[in-house]
Design a protein around this nucleic acid. Structure first.
Lengths: 360, 360
DNA sequence: TGAGATAATGAACGCGCGTACATTATTATG
DNA sequence: CATAATAATGTACGCGCGTTCATTATCTCA
């Protein structure tokens, strides 16, 4: 390895081209009137010297970093990028960031630590941010309020905070959930259990709401049933969206299998874990019970049997969040017309595969 | 949304604390002798004003960005983060970046565009970079040579460029491949086909080499067989690491099924696609033929039957690449001892599941 | 040809830090 | 108590840009 090569500045370009530094700057920023001859001279000198403007100096002078921050929850040793939700959203964000001429700066946030959001903003290293994995807790709400009060552009993905005016991109989880359970009902299933994810995520509540709405309409729940606590114990289980928590749920579900004909799981991973766990009790999906997952991840396609699942457009959610928030900072080609918060809710869709046979 | 809040600089902190700006700087950087009383006064003033140093100004003054660049290939609309290899490596990089107090800046590189590597370096926006998805083509080699010549610290992952002194973190794909095929041989299989990935990746060549070594040693190939061209046509297929290319390979393989007892596929996705494709011809994996995948992705565990697969420590590869290259810039707690290039090759491991029964 | 208007370019300085060198304050020693 | 040494702090400036305002060059018109 050799010494780091000398950095070429606009000063050297100016000298070689026989112009001032301001002219070099003007040429590179396409600013003001410029004689074509001068312009060519500068560009030629820059090419000769292999000059690239120093991005840090530019950011500093412009008071704009050119970075879109993406805030991810940090859990040690967890392969966060390998989680379907995160990977799809990030892919969508990446697409938009590239299209908008921004760079994507990842920030890992340790859950529970304070001031991380505010610090992200105040250090000026990102112009805006998109937040994944936010939870609806009082301290996190307070931090987000601080960000909002400071006028810093950000957007939550897949996490609704009712009563706040935060920018959000979400999906119709209630609707997706409802359709999944209606599908099971239409196939003749009545004893339909629900495997929930962690309740601090708004989307877990949405899924539960959709499940309960469908069950109430089918007369399988009392008309005033509103919360998980109103469900019969044998119909409600909870995991943390991981496959292993799905396997654990299988153990909990095992004593009640005679009363359960179908299961609606809050994501594919838990559905898969549940299927694996129940198979150990000789209970075969698609034959002995029906199962619907959520997310329509790649894995849903390769299980045995392939999983009926609710498709959520995570990629598009990521892309839209990035697009909208970058518009707020004037990073794109247009400036957003107003300063009102934006709330988008994208449609979900049921993808039917072989995990649910016609029962009756 | 409100106006962006006024940014507090060290000037305001200095005024409130009754010291000079240099003292504020010293306190925040823990530099030089400092009276404890003065230090507390400064910290209190900073807290009162909610001061955070401006990261861009710091980077500029320090001539160091604090960013580790991660270069990813950009293919429009491809959900790159959802690919097992990328997601695992990125998770490992993320872990190390967090531990080293760096930020992770993603750069998408359009394959075929020139000067992207050099521009990344010259814009000074990253202090070092880790490159994923590099290919062994003359133009890309030339670009990497330019980076190396400029003394810019970078590291290739999973891509060996023979004859160069680039920093590399790789895995023993030849060994993993060899063990996979030996496993099939030990189970009694003789007609073992190979489904290769794209040949511009060095690791595709490694897998092929391992396959061929095992087959030669078993007397199933001539002693001088060295390249794909030396293989019988019915034993060699090529895909591009995607599941759909695996399904396509099933069609190509179908006419030769009577001569194929087992398949070694270059990654799990192609293995899965192949299994799905062959199942459409009534050919059932684990019963009618054996199959071994590569990567040991999550999907390998949920297929029917669960896939025997070679586990590659992508996460650890990412983590080590980041660690090593950040050491080069003095980003970690230690400075690397020398300026020699580093080359790491991590072990792979065969994980046996139910896709290969004992044949004879 | 001269004056006025417009185009093109240069000089100067700020952005918010880090730090070298200068200055001041404090402590130790004879 | 005076001097020397050391600790603590301040002044000034650079980092490489973007851009305002001043200056110079060029063009148009009477």
């Amino acid at each position: 390895m050799k010494e780091v090569a000398a950095i070429v500045t606009r000063k050297e370009v100016a000298e070689l081209a026989g112009v001032s530094e301001a002219t070099v700057s003007r040429v590179f920023n396409d600013v003001g009137p410029m004689k074509e001859q001068t312009r060519q001279r500068v560009l030629q000198a820059a090419k000769t010297l292999n000059y690239h403007p120093n991005a840090i100096a530019q950011s500093f002078a412009r008071r704009r970093s050119g970075n879109l921050g993406v805030v991810l929850p940090y859990v040690p040793k967890v392969h966060i990028f390998s989680t379907y939700y995160f990977s799809e959203v990030l892919s969508g964000i990446g697409e938009q960031v590239k299209a908008s001429g921004y760079d994507m700066l990842l920030k890992f946030r340790v859950p529970g630590e304070e001031s991380d959001y505010s610090g992200i903003f105040r250090s000026q290293k990102v112009d805006a941010c998109v937040i994944l994995g936010a939870t609806d807790t009082p301290s996190e709400r307070a931090e987000l309020k601080r960000l909002e009060d400071g006028g810093f552009p950000f957007c939550l993905i897949n996490q609704h905070m009712s009563g706040e005016r935060f920018n959000e991109v979400d999906a119709d989880h209630e609707g997706g959930s409802y359709r999944a359970v209606r599908h099971l009902l239409d196939l003749g299933y009545r004893g339909i259990a629900f495997l929930s994810g962690s309740p601090e995520f708004s989307n877990s509540g949405d899924r539960l709401r959709g499940y309960m709405r469908a069950m109430r309409e089918a007369g399988l729940l009392p008309a005033d049933a509103k919360a998980a606590g109103d469900l019969p114990a044998h119909l409600y289980y909870e995991g943390n969206y991981s496959r292993t928590s799905g396997m654990k749920a299988a153990s909990a579900m095992h004593p009640h299998l005679s009363r359960i004909e179908a299961v609606f799981a809050s994501n594919d991973r838990m559905a898969i874990g549940l299927m694996q766990g129940l198979r150990e009790y000789g209970h075969v999906p698609g034959r002995d019970y029906a199962i619907v997952g959520y997310d329509d991840s790649e894995a849903a396609r390769v299980t045995d049997p392939p999983l009926t699942s609710v498709a959520v457009p995570f990629y598009e959610m990521g892309r839209l969040a990035a697009e909208r928030v970058l518009r707020r900072v004037g990073g794109g080609n247009e400036t957003d017309g107003g300063s009102e918060s934006f709330r988008l809710k994208l449609d979900t869709k049921l993808v039917v595969r072989q995990s649910c046979r016609i029962l009756r």
